[in-house]
């Protein structure tokens, strides 16, 4: 008995010591992410099973004490059922996927030659070239979207230039479609593609490529059998860095995509602000979160398997 009491006291003392002074400072990040990252996600998950109602806040409680000794648990799966049966939401997911895949592909096509040229450039100017890639990222993303509104809108730079040259009589519908949204996303996220590509291309041993040429391979073969496989980690990382934010993007499709480019991000916003339907917005967010988290966990697993294989 004595030893148990002693152990309990010792444990309590240790707990107190853990929570005092320096330890408290160390607990700050833990508490912060627990309260402001983990907790909100759980609340989101909870509300996605609630029912919409006219009240403040506009959703029903899942667990309720009824009169007497009844504890009622009401789980509403209706929000999720709507997501997978209503055409608007299915279309929203398809649009987001299509835009994200297209922009990731275009970023790769644009970013690879640039990253390659930077990696093979003179060492003295390499830092400046990289700096120039990242610099637009520091200016506000709204400004970058605005730049494309200015270029593409019916009375924008491109249309007024073409009309002045009498090439067209009516402004071309360049804006308010999914292509414009794609261009905006490509423009915004191109640096995210170039950086990982650069760092893996830079590591490629130039003599390997020369060896491929010496052994008689064409530039195409050299590219696909030597450069591509060696740059693969950069390609995967860059694609993930573009694809993930593109999937949940709100601002760019909202401003450049017009009314018909309803992506998931915009649907969440509309459900919340226009329809005041918190549960539907929450359910949409949970599904979107799954779409974002799944590719990342897949990549993580791959990395771990690779690390294991490397050992």
């Amino acid at each position: 008995m004595y030893s148990i009491a002693e152990r309990i006291i010792e444990g309590l003392a240790q707990l107190l010591r853990n929570f005092s002074g320096r330890r408290l400072l160390i607990w700050l990040p833990f508490m912060w992410v627990l309260i402001f990252v983990v907790c909100p996600c759980l609340i989101l998950f909870k509300i996605s099973f609630a029912e919409s109602q006219v009240a403040s806040p506009p959703y029903s409680e899942l667990i309720e004490w009824l009169s007497g000794h009844m504890l009622q648990l009401r789980i509403n799966l209706g929000n999720y059922v709507t997501l997978f049966t209503d055409d608007m939401y299915i279309h929203g997911f398809a649009t987001s996927m299509l835009i994200a895949i297209t922009s990731t592909g275009c970023c790769l096509l644009l970013g690879f030659p640039m990253a390659y040229a930077i990696a093979r450039s003179n060492e003295k100017i390499r830092d400046i070239l990289l700096m120039l890639v990242i610099l637009p990222f520091w200016t506000s993303s709204l400004i970058r979207v605005y730049a494309w509104i200015m270029l593409l809108s019916p009375c924008g730079v491109i249309n007024s230039l073409l009309m002045k040259l009498h090439i067209i009589d009516m402004p071309l519908p360049l804006m308010n479609n999914s292509y414009a949204a794609c261009i905006g996303i490509i423009y915004t996220y191109l640096p995210f593609m170039i950086f990982p590509l650069y760092s893996s291309i830079e590591k490629i041993d130039q003599s390997l490529i020369e060896a491929a040429y010496d052994l008689g391979s064409s530039p195409m073969t050299a590219f696909f059998s030597v450069i591509m496989p060696l740059a693969l980690p950069g390609i995967i990382a860059g694609s993930a860095l573009v694809f993930v934010p593109a999937l949940g993007e709100f601002v760019i499709p909202e401003l450049l995509g017009g009314a018909q480019t309803l992506t998931i991000g915009r649907l969440v916003w509309n459900e919340f602000f226009s329809n005041m339907s918190w549960p539907t917005a929450a359910a949409l967010s949970i599904v979107l979160l799954l779409f974002v988290v799944l590719p990342i966990t897949f990549l993580q697993e791959r990395k771990q398997i690779k690390a294991l294989a490397g050992d």
Binding site: F36, V37, G248, S285, L288, V292
Partner: peptide
Amino acid sequence: SAIAAPLVIPEVIIGLSLLML
């Protein structure tokens, strides 16, 4: 993972879930 999560969670979801919190 919890520290890095806001890097990948779409902004719309961060905003919505924080408001609900």
